[in-house]
Computed example of a mutant assay.
Amino acid sequence: MAAGSLISISEILKNNNYAVLKNIKTSTVEVCNETTGRLVSKAKLKISMEKSKEFDEVIARGNLKKVNGGINLDTNGI
C-alpha cells in the first residue's frame, strides 16, 4: 500500500518538474508479525530524488497564477 503511494508521489514530482529521479532501490526486510510473533518478509522500496534545476521557476509560475487568479487583467473596457 505504501509503495504505491511512494511511486505516485515521486511520479507527480517528476512530471511537474519539481524533482529529478536519482536512484531506485528495492530489498526485503524481516518484520515480526504482531499477532503471530513470526518473522515475515516485506518489500522495501527506496526512491531517491533531488530538486530539479527548474524548481524555483516552476514554484514562481505557480505563485504567479495564484496571484493573477483573483485579478481581472482584461483592460478592453477602460
Rank of each mutant, 00 (worst) to 15 (best):
M1D: 11
M1F: 00
A2K: 08
A3P: 02
G4Y: 10
S5F: 14
S5N: 08
L6Q: 08
L6N: 10
I7P: 00
I7L: 06
I9S: 04
S10L: 01
S10Q: 02
S10Y: 05
E11R: 14
I12P: 04
I12V: 13
I12K: 14
K14L: 06
N15W: 06
N15V: 02
N16P: 05
N17D: 15
Y18K: 04
A19N: 02
V20R: 03
V20A: 00
V20N: 04
L21P: 06
L21I: 00
K22D: 14
K22E: 10
N23A: 06
S27N: 15
S27C: 02
T28R: 03
T28Y: 08
T28E: 09
V29S: 01
V29N: 04
E30H: 04
E30T: 03
E30I: 00
N33E: 14
E34W: 07
E34C: 04
T35H: 05
T36L: 08
L39Q: 14
L39N: 13
V40P: 02
K44W: 03
L45P: 02
L45Q: 01
I47S: 08
S48G: 14
M49E: 11
M49L: 15
E50T: 13
E50D: 02
K51H: 01
K51G: 06
S52H: 07
S52N: 11
S52M: 09
K53A: 12
F55N: 03
E57V: 00
E57C: 01
V58M: 04
V58Q: 07
I59M: 11
I59P: 12
I59A: 13
I59S: 10
I59T: 05
A60V: 06
R61H: 11
R61I: 09
R61L: 15
G62D: 12
N63I: 09
N63E: 15
N63W: 05
N63Y: 04
N68M: 12
G69P: 05
G69R: 13
G70M: 03
I71A: 03
L73T: 15
D74M: 10
N76C: 08
N76E: 06
G77L: 13
I78D: 15
I78Y: 14
